[in-house]
């Protein structure tokens, strides 16, 4: 296999919680929020890696740490073998050209007081497009993402949600990045519009040979776009596998529950695993296996207090569960 484009090595992002005045007087060490707690990931050139998990599992923090929009507590992020966490500010600004982020909320990620030309033109100007050419490049980009050239002088509020997301994509594409993180990029859109944007992202991937990290809570979308999928729970990756394999032979109990919880149009009567309880907070995560409190496996035992490591159980299939067997049985296929 090729050399990975992005390697995440034991990445941790911990945030100190606010201390009260009394606690500060007593010099109490702040409680930590373990948003991302020891994540390892390899992302290969040209692939789409899906990252799924429920709200609060740390997937957005992971994305921001990979782009160094927030500083990791420890660990490394290697972009083509170069540790970007160590780059000085100036080089980091140049490095940003290679990696871009598409946001969830197309209403918040566009400055309401700036025109489309200024928004999409900013990255162009910052990375050395001659001033005379900015406008025409912006027009070309707008056309590429399915908008009209005449939209160049409009303000964001004059567009619909889907169109705004196209503007966001155009801005990300402007610097010709190689790696794009899409953080819930289609979650806020209606189904029919969502389909348009997914198709656009896939076309662009082929045309520009992009690598995606596709973050979402929507398993149907992620299964549709990803080559491989990583499942995250409370700051850790619990399962990583090739897409079809993950859906056919999920091994981690959390993945199984997640898959069975998706409401489906095509398959209505089936066994459902309904998890009891709600997600524990990442402020004081349980020791050992983080899923222990909600786990439904009959085998679960005090051994689960030993933190399970991500281990290989099949070709390109990694699970962090002590009870995952090497070759899991094939589940009944979801799609006929």
């Amino acid at each position: 296999m090729d050399r990975p484009l992005v390697q995440v090595r034991d990445l941790k992002v911990h945030f100190p919680m606010k201390r009260s005045f009394k606690e500060r007087l007593r010099k109490k060490t702040p409680t930590m929020l373990y948003a991302v707690d020891g994540v390892n990931l390899d992302i290969y050139p040209g692939e789409t890696l899906g990252l799924v998990g429920e709200s609060g599992c740390g997937k957005s923090t992971l994305a921001r740490a990979i782009l160094r929009l927030c500083e990791p507590t420890s660990g490394q992020v290697l972009f083509e073998g170069k540790d970007i966490c160590q780059l000085p500010a100036k080089e980091m600004r140049a490095q940003r050209k290679e990696m871009q982020l598409i946001f969830q909320d197309p209403y918040a990620s566009l400055n309401p007081r700036r025109t489309v030309e200024e928004i999409v033109g900013l990255p162009l100007a910052l990375h050395g497009t001659p001033p005379g050419q900015v406008r025409s490049r912006v027009k070309a980009l707008l056309k590429r993402v399915g908008l009209h050239e005449s939209h160049v002088d409009r303000f964001p509020h004059q567009f619909s949600g889907g169109q705004r997301q196209r503007i966001v994509i155009a801005r990300a594409l402007a610097v010709k990045p190689r790696f794009i993180i899409a953080d819930e990029a289609v979650s806020a859109l209606d189904v029919s519009i969502q389909a348009q944007i997914i198709n656009l992202l896939q076309e662009l991937q082929q045309d520009f040979n992009l690598t995606y990290l596709f973050i979402t809570h929507d398993l149907s979308v992620v299964s549709y776009v990803s080559d491989r999928i990583a499942v995250m729970y409370l700051g850790q990756i619990v399962e990583l596998a090739e897409t079809q394999r993950l859906f056919d032979r999920p091994m981690h109990p959390y993945t199984k529950a997640l898959l069975s919880a998706i409401p489906r149009v095509d398959k209505r009567t089936r066994e459902r695993i309904i998890l009891r309880g709600s997600v524990p907070t990442p402020i004081n995560p349980p020791p050992g296996c983080r899923f222990y409190s909600r786990c439904f496996l009959p085998q679960k035992s005090p051994y689960c207090l030993i933190p399970p490591r991500l281990r290989q159980v099949g070709e390109d299939h990694y699970v962090a569960c002590h009870y995952a067997v090497a070759e899991p049985p094939l589940l009944e296929r979801g799609v006929g």
Partner: peptide, 14 residues
């Protein structure tokens, strides 16, 4: 337009 679970061979029709 609804992406089908685990089906990525064809384009979704929007």
């Amino acid at each position: 337009s609804v992406p089908k679970l685990g089906d990525r061979r064809h384009r979704i029709q929007s």
